[in-house]
Design a protein around this nucleic acid. Structure first.
Lengths: 331, 331
DNA sequence: CTGTTAGCGCGTTCAT
DNA sequence: ATGAACGCGCTAACAG
């Protein structure tokens, strides 16, 4: 039998209201009684039943988190930060994977909303049709936008721009770009940012030769390897490649090794995200860092403080220089 | 204002009990009334409040999942499988990280239990003091044991044994073992299994020289790198190393590269777990595979079908041969 | 400062 | 077959 607030009250010789006040850290409780109640609570191993509390208050301390795939290190990192911050505030997180499938996403969101969470943190899939479902439901989207919802993420155009800028400054003139799924805004924005820097260069240096090849596909390791092979197995492969994710970059490293290219001597690589693994691969990966801890903090803040306005928060990405990139001089 | 079962009852001119029966698809409701009630429900856009229901039934459709760290690819994979299976059965999963900290774990478990989940899937930390908390609470532990609780995991001794057996068969005679935190049963068992094979070899071949060096630390990438440096930066480093996790193995690869050792020519490595990344690193990692999908399935099954017995389910690990290992002949 | 009590929304038992 | 009433565990309002 589980122990309820009533049992505590009886054991401590007080009324349930008093116990409730102790739990709520209400100051209008005498020191003496507070101590006694707290002692009894510990003795009986009492845990407040959140169902009762939630029903009474008509709200839960649950945060829904819907992401494409928890095994993606980027989302795992996001989930970790969200969970840490949430539990520090007394909230628990309901995790659901959408597997980048609109139908699955709709199902997951619907189920989670039925559990009356205080808020929903969402990384929407493309072609998401959940706009109606979440409208007016205290939702924040992260990483990817959803019409009418607050978005917290990084300035992806700026990130793509930084990658191109860096590779150009290193002297590379045969560039490759490995994009994410072009149906995703994030993927397109990163690519556009990359291109915009390229075009600016071409306008300033009309004479110089500058070649850019582009491929795109999923964000994961496997896509990185496959797309890498497409990019590298040709007559004049790029001397530097920027990718739309670190996972792609790591897959690309694999492909480069299979082709016999050494990094960074024959090929420079710039990733995107700065997942934990980026600083451990061989060689350590230069990448565009997303301030994920801050993204999580802002997202949760928006959820818990319920800011009425639908805003858009674009954080600044940062280039992290490591060992997968190197200056290039014409050979 | 949200519409409750009472509103529906009033609008339909019936009692709340009747509406409840319609919702429960109870057959003891006349066709006529059922139709009318269902119509009113649609008109008012009524959705049952799960809080009230849960409080009344004293149970939820929630599964608690407490793991050390979701950014560990092994646990991320576990979480993914658990979530997929759970949502297919209409359950949602509450995720909590313990950060391998007994106090945090206790806090998390307590919070989750307060939400009255249908069951709890737990990867306990060492020195866990939550035995009392979860006793009689429909709990299953995964990967690591907790006294008095059903355990689903792999036969770790067998896994360690397989690694040693494989390296010996390859001709290696200077071996290294990189263990996990020795306070963890899993870590000790893998090591013991490794040693048991070594000792068997020594007994059968008393004349042959055979050296084993051991280090241990955390399961993560960083520990792998640090411990790797300890193992490799000495006069006669091992020619083959078995690790207690793939993350360690990948960190070890880093260390080997820094020392100037090439894999598998100068050093063979066998990992443990077979995380997705294992087949993508350079070179692809030979490892002891844990059948994680099956582990998740069995664990969830145990939770949902509430088998009374406290059992122990040890699955068979499998050696996956890839490119990080190679035969060794005395030089 | 503390005890008492009325619901929060729902499922179920007991009448009818 | 249906209605009425109770109580799940809790908080807040009110009374003392």
């Amino acid at each position: 039998m589980t122990v309820t607030i009533k049992d505590v009250a009886k054991a401590a010789g007080v009324a349930v209201g008093t116990v409730s006040r102790v739990l709520a850290k209400n100051k209008t409780v005498s020191e003496e009684i507070r101590i006694r109640v707290e002692e009894v609570i510990r003795e009986l191993g009492y845990t407040p039943n959140s169902l009762g509390r939630n029903l009474r208050l008509n709200k839960t301390d649950l945060i829904g988190l819907v992401i494409p795939d928890i095994t993606n290190p980027f989302f795992a990192e996001l989930a970790k930060h969200v969970e840490m911050l949430a539990s520090a505030e007394g909230y628990s997180v309901l995790l659901a994977n959408s597997h980048d499938d609109p139908a699955a996403e709709q199902q997951q969101v619907q189920t989670l909303l039925g559990r009356l969470p205080s808020g929903l943190i969402l990384v929407p899939v493309s072609e998401s049709r959940i706009g109606d479902l979440v409208s007016g439901r205290n939702t924040v989207t992260v990483d990817r936008p959803l019409k009418g919802q607050t978005l917290v993420g990084v300035d992806n155009r700026r990130g793509g721009y930084l990658a191109a800028d860096y590779l150009l400054s290193l002297g590379h003139r045969r560039l490759g770009y490995m994009g994410g799924p072009q149906m995703l805004d994030v993927a397109r924005e990163r690519y556009e940012g990359f291109l915009s820097r390229i075009q600016a260069f071409q306008q300033r240096h009309p004479g110089q030769s500058l070649a850019v090849q582009t491929v795109d596909g999923n964000f994961d390791y496997k896509a990185g390897e496959e797309l890498g092979n497409r990019l590298l197995r040709q007559e004049h492969p790029p001397t530097a490649i920027a990718t739309a994710s670190d996972q792609q970059a790591i897959g690309l490293m694999r492909a480069a090794a299979d082709v016999g290219l050494s990094i960074p001597d024959d090929l420079s690589i710039v990733g995107f995200d700065d997942i934990p693994l980026a600083s451990l691969v061989l060689p350590r990966l230069t990448t565009i860092r997303q301030p994920l801890a801050e993204i999580a903090r802002i997202a949760l803040d928006a959820i818990l403080n319920r800011p009425s306005a639908t805003t858009e928060c674009k954080l600044e990405p940062v280039l992290v220089e490591r060992s997968s990139t190197r200056a290039w001089s014409a050979r």
